[in-house]
């Protein structure tokens, strides 16, 4: 828990209930949490604030998770290397492969247990790309 203190995570999901679910899990493990409702908003937040990790839903309006991570990685920006976990309800190999080739660090299939989320967040916080 103390090792997570001060680490900042951006949750990106269009479902308010899911954001709350992830937020409570991460805050209980000592992380500081910010939220965005889609990929576009997430990019804006990443440009303005520093984050150690982004947890991003694959399926969102305006900008989906795959487009988000591809856009992020393609720019030569100081934030381009921030670790990204993609979440999706699809357990099939297609989305996982798309997430990996777009540049995501890891792929989590929903439902993600709160303890699991906190565990992976701790592992990937500040991880190299």
């Amino acid at each position: 828990m103390t090792q997570n203190a001060g680490k900042r995570i951006l949750i990106v999901d269009d479902a308010a209930l899911v954001r709350t679910y992830y937020r409570t899990a991460l805050e209980q493990s000592g992380f500081l949490v910010e939220e965005a409702l889609n990929g576009l908003e997430a990019l804006e937040k990443l440009l303005m604030q520093t984050f150690d990790l982004a947890i991003v839903d694959i399926n969102m309006p305006h900008m989906d998770g795959i487009t988000f991570v591809r856009t992020l990685r393609s720019k030569e920006l100081p934030v381009s290397g921030v670790p990204v976990l993609i979440t999706s309800t699809e357990a099939g190999p297609q989305d996982a492969a798309a997430a990996r080739s777009a540049g995501a660090n890891f792929y989590l299939v929903k439902p993600v247990r709160q303890e699991t989320l906190a565990e992976y967040a701790a592992i990937f916080c500040g991880a190299p790309r």
Binding site: A15, L17, V18, T20, Y21, Y22, T89, P111, V112, R113
Partner: peptide, 19 residues
């Protein structure tokens, strides 16, 4: 209902729940 599901239903993020 929303709080109960967040606290007690482990699949709350796997479905598009509309209340």
């Amino acid at each position: 209902i929303a709080i109960w599901l967040l606290e007690n239903w482990k699949e709350v993020d796997a479905y598009d729940i509309e209340i």
